[in-house]
Simulated assay, not measured.
Amino acid sequence: MSIGKQIKAMRKIRGLTQKELAEKCSMADSAVRKYESGKIVPKIEMLKRIADALEMPVGAFLPSMGLGESTGSRIKIARERQGVTQAELAEKMGVTPQSISQYERNIINPKPETIKKFADALGVDARWLEVGEYEDNSLSGEEQQLLRYFRIMSPEGQHVALERMDELSQHPRYKKDF
């Protein structure tokens, strides 16, 4: 999801208009429109102001800008979530622990077939490992963003997030009309 779409999604989740977000950031609402449409990408200083106004970490935007998250970091995240050591993953994949370390530190960029092996060994989506997006085209950009947020949370944060999602899903205001 582009940074503009992320800004728009989070603005809507927070129940803000473009004008309200602009006021919180001390900028023109035309700038918010340009960011959301993708006509311009905010500089990091402005992104920080937007993140603060939306009450979220600026790092949540960085993966879509190609910063802060890489294939190596996603491999490490997935491995740690599985509770697997580098040595255990290496054995499962038939490679050395040193090569796992090099992939995780982005010294070596894995080829597509290696990404597939990582995905199979870790039980995650190969497209997510490669580019931070999901192969499942049925997921909207907002759903993919929810998954990204969930994956960067600690187990305790994930538990709290699920509790809150359960609360929201029961609230009449937020239920879909089928």
Results as ranks from 00 to 15, higher is better:
residue 163 E to V: 06
residue 98 Q to N: 09
residue 2 S to L: 10
residue 46 M to Q: 15
residue 49 R to N: 09
residue 29 D to I: 05
residue 63 P to H: 00
residue 162 L to F: 09
residue 3 I to K: 04
residue 37 S to I: 05
residue 165 M to P: 00
residue 153 M to Y: 14
residue 65 M to W: 04
residue 141 G to D: 06
residue 28 A to G: 10
residue 42 P to W: 02
residue 67 L to S: 13
residue 62 L to M: 15
residue 11 R to T: 08
residue 81 R to K: 14
residue 67 L to V: 13
residue 17 T to M: 09
residue 106 N to Y: 02
residue 24 K to I: 11
residue 74 R to P: 06
residue 98 Q to V: 07
residue 4 G to P: 03
residue 112 P to T: 02
residue 42 P to H: 09
residue 158 Q to D: 04
residue 43 K to S: 11
residue 77 I to D: 06
residue 46 M to V: 15
residue 94 G to N: 14
residue 103 Y to C: 08
residue 105 R to M: 06
residue 160 V to C: 00
residue 84 V to A: 11
residue 159 H to R: 15
residue 176 K to Q: 05
residue 90 A to E: 04
residue 108 I to Y: 03
residue 71 T to K: 10
residue 38 G to A: 12
residue 76 K to L: 14
residue 151 R to N: 01
residue 72 G to R: 10
residue 78 A to M: 06
residue 64 S to A: 14
residue 18 Q to G: 01
residue 108 I to Q: 00
residue 102 Q to N: 08
residue 127 R to Q: 14
residue 25 C to Q: 03
residue 172 P to W: 02
residue 116 K to Q: 11
residue 8 K to D: 09
residue 95 V to D: 13
residue 77 I to G: 05
residue 107 I to H: 01
residue 157 G to A: 06
residue 60 A to P: 10
residue 147 L to Q: 03
residue 89 L to D: 07
residue 113 E to V: 10
residue 28 A to D: 08
residue 96 T to F: 00
residue 14 R to H: 12
residue 93 M to S: 06
residue 30 S to T: 14
residue 94 G to E: 12
residue 53 A to G: 03
residue 145 Q to L: 15
residue 150 F to I: 09
residue 163 E to S: 02
residue 172 P to I: 00
residue 22 A to V: 02
residue 133 E to M: 10
residue 10 M to K: 01
residue 9 A to K: 08
residue 91 E to P: 03
residue 156 E to A: 06
residue 91 E to H: 14
residue 43 K to M: 10
residue 35 Y to H: 01
residue 25 C to P: 03
residue 4 G to E: 01
residue 87 A to I: 13
residue 151 R to D: 01
residue 166 D to H: 15
residue 117 K to M: 15
residue 75 I to R: 04
residue 56 M to G: 09
residue 116 K to L: 10
residue 28 A to W: 02
residue 138 S to D: 02
residue 81 R to Y: 07
residue 136 D to A: 12
residue 27 M to N: 00
residue 81 R to P: 09
residue 86 Q to G: 15
residue 96 T to P: 05
residue 27 M to L: 06
residue 62 L to S: 07
residue 51 A to R: 07
residue 3 I to C: 08
residue 37 S to T: 12
residue 99 S to G: 08
residue 160 V to Q: 03
residue 87 A to P: 09
residue 154 S to M: 00
residue 49 R to D: 01
residue 34 K to Y: 12
residue 155 P to R: 14
residue 144 Q to W: 01
residue 166 D to W: 13
residue 37 S to R: 00
residue 79 R to A: 09
residue 45 E to F: 11
residue 83 G to F: 01
residue 143 E to A: 13
residue 4 G to A: 05
residue 11 R to D: 05
residue 101 S to T: 11
residue 136 D to E: 11
residue 52 D to N: 10
residue 64 S to W: 11
residue 72 G to L: 08
residue 27 M to R: 09
residue 42 P to L: 04
residue 114 T to E: 05
residue 15 G to T: 05
residue 118 F to K: 12
residue 8 K to I: 07
residue 7 I to D: 01
residue 41 V to Q: 13
